[in-house]
């Protein structure tokens, strides 16, 4: 019996060795280790053996069984690994081929600039106010210290609809309207972005429709130094912390004093170059202390209340920031232009 077991062992291990697939290996297992297999049969004949021989043969049979089983397991792992290896090889793809595109849109450059400015002033406690684009002559001009016949009120620049209705030429009427709602008592702290219209022929630097952002702060004891501080905060956040600002006298009918704000030129650092026309400074916005006539017309006591206002053109800021040379790009909506500014 001992010989028979050893014979079975050699035979089985040989078959395991020869098995090339998992199925073949399964058959080997069934053939040798199954209930009807030869090892079971040998054990069944153990009754004929002596008491002394029984445990020895029993032990041997178990050893053989284990050896065959281990060999099968080992072979199985090996075959499985090989099969996986094969599968991985087959499943390999060209990772450099393009992916399935996901349609993603993006904001218009002007919207990005406007929202950036909005967020900046929201952070300083300003509100955003909006108003009608078709305005009355009163709010667009008269309430802003531009009575009928005022030289700065060039009729040729304005799209009139009737004598009293027009396309607003600036967003300042929103300021006049907002002040008017406060009964001359509450402070105002607002910016008003929006579309405005001028009677211009469209060319590289003119557009009959463009955008504006104006700001207004009215309260007791507002100082011109406050205007300077707010504008500097804005300029440094918008254009970089190393930018300097400069105020210089200017003229607007609704502010007195009126100033224009320049920032130091980024291109040349103030040395003078073609971007800043040799001056070292770039004009960014107009501002000033609210004219007492404007305050009085809105119902404020101009002895007690003072304020400042400022206004800027997002197109100009976008053009400066991105080196865009033609204002018409903003309204032609060429997909090749728009998509350049979609990245966040």
């Amino acid at each position: 019996m001992k010989e028979r077991l050893q014979e079975l062992e050699t035979e089985a291990l040989g078959k395991v060795e020869k098995s090339g697939t998992i199925d073949e290996l399964k058959q080997v297992r069934v053939e040798y280790l199954g209930k009807k297999g030869p090892i079971t049969e040998v054990l069944r004949g153990m009754g004929k053996l002596s008491k002394e021989e029984r445990p020895v043969i029993g032990q041997l049979a178990n050893d053989v069984r284990e050896k065959i089983s281990d060999a099968i397991d080992e072979k199985q792992t090996k075959l499985e690994d090989e099969a996986l290896e094969e599968q991985l090889k087959e499943e390999s793809i060209d990772v450099t081929l393009p992916g399935r595109p996901v349609q993603v849109g993006g904001p218009h450059l002007l919207t990005s600039i406007i929202e950036e400015i909005e967020d900046l002033f929201l952070g300083m406690g300003f509100e955003i106010k909006e108003g009608p684009e078709v305005e009355t002559d009163y709010y667009n001009f008269e309430a802003l210290n531009l009575p009928k016949g005022h030289p700065a009120r060039d009729m040729q620049d304005t799209f009139y609809i009737t004598e009293e209705l027009l396309m607003r030429t600036h967003t300042s009427p929103v300021q006049a309207r907002t002040m008017g709602q406060k009964n001359g008592t509450e402070p105002v702290k607002m910016i008003c972005p929006g579309k405005v219209y001028r009677r211009d022929t469209d060319d590289a630097t003119h557009s009959h429709q463009f955008t504006q952002i104006e700001g207004l702060l009215v309260d007791e004891n507002v100082r011109m130094s406050d205007l300077k501080g707010v504008l500097q905060t804005f300029a440094q956040k918008m254009f970089g912390a190393e930018r300097e600002i400069r105020l210089r006298p200017s003229f607007f009918p609704f502010t007195e004093p009126s100033v224009e704000m320049d920032i130091s030129c980024k291109m040349c650092g103030g040395e003078g170059c073609s971007v800043c026309k040799g001056t070292g400074w770039i004009e960014i916005l107009g501002a000033g202390m609210v004219h007492p006539n404007v305050l009085e017309m809105a119902g404020y006591d101009s002895e007690k209340y003072s304020g400042f206002a400022f206004g800027m053109g997002p197109e100009r800021i976008a053009m400066l920031k991105h080196g865009i040379d033609d204002i018409r790009h903003f309204y032609t909506n060429d997909v090749r232009f728009l998509s350049q500014y979609h990245k966040a």
Binding site: F121, L122, G123, M124, G125, F126, E127, P187, K189, L217, D219, E220, N221, V222, R223, M224, S225, D226, K228, G229, V230, Q232, T233, L247
Partner: peptide, 13 residues
């Protein structure tokens, strides 16, 4: 002119 910030009534924005 100095740079100051408005000490006006605080508003949340």
């Amino acid at each position: 002119l100095p740079y100051t910030l408005p000490n006006s009534s605080q508003q949340a924005g």
